[in-house]
Amino acid sequence: MWPRTRALSVHLLTATGAVFAMFSLLAAVEGNWSWMFLWLLAALAVDGIDGPLARRWDVTLHAARFDGVMLDLIIDYLTYVFIPVYALYASGLVPGWAGWGILTVVPFAGALYFADVRMKTEDASFEGFPGCWNMVALVVFVLEPNPWLTLVVSILLSVAMFLPLRFVHPVRTDRWRPLTLAVTLAWLGLAFAAAWGEFGLGRVAGWAFAAASAYLLLAGIAQQALGRRRLA
């Protein structure tokens, strides 16, 4: 009985992400962007924990009634794509035609990506940009770039979802794992500080946040390029 109960508890943990998504959406509707991101970060933390627990406790064997992968993808689409993109437009950071461009392109591409059966590679990295628009949106809230630049970057990342480019999984990608985990934890800490402090990080912390974001975005591509160089 214990293995079954333990495995079922992982599904229950994953499902809390839907509650966090609802709280985040309510905060967004009220224009409380700090709390919106804090709830999204809570959902992100759950998403980072439930996968390792599911594999360790054989969820597919002991709690097969519920499809953990499907549950995870539903919640990820809400918290990674739908709510963050709404926030970019509703906050006024990407208004007008630039905002409508993001509202059209990103949810469309994100829906296709989260249904892509080839999103993972043999080394547990992501094939294509993994649709982390929650992270992109937080960077936009902190840095406040030109709206048209945000749109251009969003279009490029949407296209990158379906290109043969690799992006590291913060927990599962073996190569550079200690560094990746350290950068991920640093990013999460800075992200929490940014959301809690109304997106004002200061100069040093802001540069550190940008550097951590750049590493998580480009590390997989760098690994891929180094691997091809070795084969050449």
Rank of each mutant, 00 (worst) to 15 (best):
V29F: 13
W57V: 13
R56V: 13
R56C: 12
W39I: 00
A43G: 01
P52H: 09
R56W: 15
N32G: 06
L41Y: 08
V29H: 10
A28P: 03
R55L: 14
W33N: 02
A27M: 12
S34Y: 08
R56G: 14
P52Q: 04
V29I: 14
G31E: 03
V29P: 00
W35P: 01
A43P: 00
G51M: 12
S34L: 02
G48I: 09
A43F: 00
A28V: 07
G48D: 05
G51R: 01
P52S: 11
G51A: 12
W39N: 02
L44A: 11
L25W: 14
V46W: 01
V29E: 10
P52Y: 10
V29Q: 15
L25T: 10
L38W: 06
V46P: 00
A28N: 01
D50L: 02
G31Y: 07
N32I: 07
L53C: 04
E30W: 04
L44H: 04
L41E: 01
W33H: 11
D50R: 02
W33S: 12
A45D: 01
A28T: 10
A43Y: 03
A42Q: 01
W35Q: 10
A54W: 00
D47V: 09
L41P: 08
A42E: 07
V29G: 07
R55N: 14
A28L: 14
W39Q: 08
D50C: 05
F37Y: 08
A54G: 13
S34A: 14
D50N: 13
L26D: 13
M36C: 15
F37W: 02
S34Q: 11
L25G: 10
L44Q: 07
L41N: 03
N32Y: 12
M36P: 03
W35M: 10
A45I: 08
E30V: 03
A45R: 08
W57F: 15
L25P: 01
D47Q: 10
E30I: 08
V46A: 14
W35S: 05
A45Q: 02
A42V: 03
A42N: 04
G51Y: 02
A27E: 08
S34F: 07
W39M: 13
V46M: 03
S34M: 11
V29A: 14
E30C: 06
L38F: 06
L41M: 15
W35K: 09
M36E: 00
A45N: 02
L38C: 12
L26E: 10
F37L: 11
A54V: 04
L40G: 03
G48W: 00
A45M: 09
A27I: 06
W39S: 03
G31L: 03
R55F: 12
P52V: 09
G48L: 13
L53T: 07
L53D: 04
D50H: 08
L40I: 11
R56S: 15
V46D: 05
R56L: 15
N32W: 03
L44Y: 05
W33E: 08
A42T: 11
D47F: 01
L25M: 14
A42L: 15
W39E: 03
A45G: 11
L41G: 02
A27W: 03
S34K: 04
G31K: 06
W35Y: 15
A28W: 01
L41S: 09
G31A: 04
I49S: 11
R55A: 13
G48N: 08
E30P: 10
D47H: 10
L41T: 07
W33V: 00
S34W: 12
D47E: 14
L41K: 06
G48S: 10
A28E: 04
L25D: 06
D50P: 03
L53S: 05
